[in-house]
């Protein structure tokens, strides 16, 4: 039983790390600030979610589990708000989104 739990934890944390690294790679590779928002969004959603899921599986105390879930809930509310605030501020500051036909 504990072996299965450990395997599940390993795969969740490993997949979470992969998503975090790929999202940050997007932060470096994508062409402009609007498309980089998508890369940062990956870290906030599935990367954090899988890492927290992995930690949840190693927890027996319900208070610790509640705090872990609360971290996810906070991230789910705050991440789109910061993305939207940044995109809106950049758009109203006059930044032109990069597109393929108009680089």
């Amino acid at each position: 039983m504990s072996l299965i739990l450990d395997l599940a934890t390993w795969s969740a944390i490993g997949a979470g790390c992969v998503f975090i690294l790929v999202g940050t790679l997007g932060l470096l590779r994508l062409p402009d600030v609007f498309s980089r928002l998508h890369g940062a969004g990956m870290t906030d959603t599935l990367g954090a979610g899988l890492l927290v899921a992995g930690m949840l599986m190693q927890t027996t105390d319900w208070l610790v589990a509640a705090k872990l879930v609360l971290i996810l809930v906070f991230l789910a509310f705050t991440s789109p708000m910061t993305s939207h605030a940044l995109a809106r501020a950049a758009l109203h500051a006059g930044l032109q989104p990069w597109t393929r036909d108009k680089p």
């Binding site: 999202g23 609007f34 928002l37 998508h38 890369g39 969004g41 990956m42 959603t45 599935l46 789910a76 991440s79 789109p80 708000m81 993305s83 939207h84 995109a87 809106r88 758009l91």
Partner: peptide, 15 residues
């Protein structure tokens, strides 16, 4: 609706 669009990676609501 706008927050759900932003929360899914790949789409961001700008305005």
């Amino acid at each position: 609706h706008a927050n759900s669009i932003t929360l899914t990676p790949g789409t961001v609501t700008m305005d």
